[in-house]
Design a protein around this nucleic acid. Structure first.
Lengths: 132, 132
DNA sequence: CATTGTAGCGTTCAATTGAACGCCGTCAAT
DNA sequence: ATTGACGGCGTTCAATTGAACGCTACAATG
């Protein structure tokens, strides 16, 4: 219900790594970051701590270190962030964004094909009345 | 080149109104905001001032008031914000977001049709080599 | 056992953001 | 001419974010 706490740029960056790895320590996250990023160990530590405080991650001690893992389903978090973005940018309408993505951004043949498949599937579901 | 200044929530809200109206004074923006929003005149004023400082809007004095208008093409600003969002969330890949929007979000028949048209158009462009 | 390095925890600090004042000028109605 | 009301400009203030320390506990190594 409560609309997820903020998940700002840097924290998201870190969170996504944990999501991808399934679980990670500060050091692991640090190593996954692009070397060019140049964040300090302590800084990453801080972000992980904040992510835990906000409820995005949970942590359990493992020997000397802490192992962080996602507490909420990443897909769900993503979903909410997309919704939020949609609200802020297009009053919640998906179409304008879709149009933008499809028109102004070079999609490869393949990608277009994938989309077409997706649409077909949708259509079929629409026609065939829900038989659950 | 320089990646647009930040355009946070509240400021975006205000900026979008100016974009929509073409040009607006503080009071006009205030009136366009949902009454439930309850922002103060001075607050909106502050946001407009900041938007000007950041280069999103330009302002010229008109009598006692200032009239703000967009200095950058709104579509372009949007574009950059979408790119940024894509980067942060999906490493710049459009597909995952497209899939999400199409699958997890109820599109109406019509919308699906619109998309199909869009895709067809793309395909034609792809086949037909650029004859500019 | 003493040394060294790693990690946690609490703290700090500047910049940004959300929100709003106060003072001051000006224009309009008494 | 006086009194308001409105708007601009500069300022403020708390919360959040980006980034990083310092101190301390502890574990491994010489």
């Amino acid at each position: 219900m409560s609309p997820l706490p903020n998940l700002p740029r840097s924290e998201l960056e870190v969170a996504r790594i944990v999501w991808r790895l399934g679980s990670a320590t500060v050091r692991q996250v640090l190593e996954e970051l692009p070397k060019t990023r140049g964040l300090d160990f302590k800084t990453v530590q801080t972000y992980l701590r904040r992510l835990e405080a906000k409820g995005f991650l949970s942590a359990k001690r493992q020997g000397r270190s802490k192992v962080y893992r996602s507490r909420l389903r990443p897909a769900k978090v993503m979903r909410e962030m997309i919704d939020d973005f949609l609200d802020r940018m297009f009053d919640g309408e998906a179409m304008p964004l879709l149009q933008h993505l499809i028109r102004d951004r070079g999609l490869s043949e393949e990608e277009v094909e994938q989309l077409r498949v997706l649409l077909n599937r949708l259509e079929r579901e629409n026609d065939e009345p829900d038989k659950s």
